[in-house]
């Protein structure tokens, strides 16, 4: 799937024998048959877990589009996940159960919101951009908390999964495959976009915005478009998340989730198309495994597994410059 040079963002021809390509193909193949394996093990929990992984991967693919290719460090992308989740929960509470309606609402609200917030945030760059995106996410978080009619602090349960034409999302396996296909589509789209003339300019705004401007590229327009596109992908992830958990709450927009999305992108490999999928698998598997691991060794501290997660993230930032997938030969 990915076709990047190890040291370069610039994609060259896809080589089927390259470690990255092989890894991507193997991971996708395993994900494709996962429900069957889980079915054989009679463990439906793992289908839900894998759906969750894919939803995080989807949001991270969205974030990676601006973070990995556009150099925009948004520490607030969870707000769009939050938005997507409420675009399911609020209509559902009024009896609107159509998944298409939920999706349309999420996108219709997300685009103007992201365009406004992005336009303000992009007036700055560097550290200020990081902080502003964080502050905006916090603003939306408080906005959701104050929705007293829709659960306020406690959030809002969703009665049933969205209806989606002939698809029965209440079946966990169906929801899994819908998510899986969405992720594949997002991967393909971001791959195409990165290689396109638009992508060339977007990557240049990361590498040398001053030069791109001096050449005559209106880089703000490129950055804002990319920002809105990435927000929409996160909003769609939010729609899926609310369907998985049958719940929407302000916590979906918590800044820790924004942080986790960045961790996923870096862990997988910044600026690689497939990296977010690998990053999501590793991070969520770790969050699942750490408590079990501690329970087996120091049962008293089972609930304190975040201590190790924190250290892990710290060392990822310090040592893992290219990420797991990014370290493979393209």
């Amino acid at each position: 799937m990915s076709e990047m040079k190890a040291s370069s963002l610039w994609p060259v021809t896809l080589r089927w024998s390259a470690p990255r390509t092989i890894t991507a193909v193997v991971v996708i193949a395993l994900l494709a048959v996962l429900p069957m394996i889980a079915g054989a093990l009679e463990s439906s929990y793992y289908v839900s877990f894998a759906t969750r992984v894919l939803i995080y991967a989807l949001a991270a693919i969205g974030l990676n589009f601006i973070l990995g290719f556009g150099g925009m460090v948004s520490l607030g992308h969870a707000m769009y996940v939050l938005l997507g989740a409420y675009a399911v929960a609020i209509p559902a509470s009024h009896g609107v159960t159509s998944g298409f309606a939920h999706m349309a609402l999420a996108v219709a609200v997300c685009i103007p919101l992201a365009a406004c917030l992005g336009a303000v945030a992009l007036r700055t760059s560097g550290i200020a951009f990081i902080m502003i995106t964080l502050a905006f996410a916090q603003m939306l978080f408080f906005g959701a908390v104050s929705l007293k009619d829709y659960g306020g602090d406690d959030g809002l349960t969703v009665g049933a999964r969205s209806t989606l034409g002939g698809l029965d999302l209440s079946n966990n396996t169906t929801l899994y495959y819908v998510t899986f296909v969405t992720v594949l589509v997002a991967l393909y789209l971001s791959w195409r976009a990165v290689l396109s003339p638009f992508g060339l300019v977007l990557r240049a705004t990361k590498s040398n915005p001053r030069r791109a401007t001096a050449l005559g590229h209106p880089i703000f327009r490129y950055q804002l478009t990319a920002y809105v596109a990435s927000a929409v992908v996160c909003a769609i992830a939010g729609v899926l998340l609310a369907n998985l958990t049958l719940f929407a709450s302000p916590a979906y927009g918590a800044w820790t989730l924004s942080g986790e999305l960045i961790v996923i992108v870096i862990l997988g490999g910044l600026g690689t198309v497939f990296g977010p999928v690998v990053g999501a698998i590793i991070l969520l598997a770790l969050e699942e495994a750490l408590p079990m691991l501690i329970e087996a060794t120091l049962p008293d501290y089972k609930s304190n597994w975040m201590l190790l997660l924190g250290l892990f993230i710290f060392f990822v930032a310090l040592l893992l410059k290219r990420g797991v997938f990014g370290s493979l030969k393209p």
Partner: peptide, 8 residues
């Protein structure tokens, strides 16, 4: 230049 699809 504002194209998202074709390969540059």
């Amino acid at each position: 230049n504002f194209r998202f699809w074709g390969n540059a």
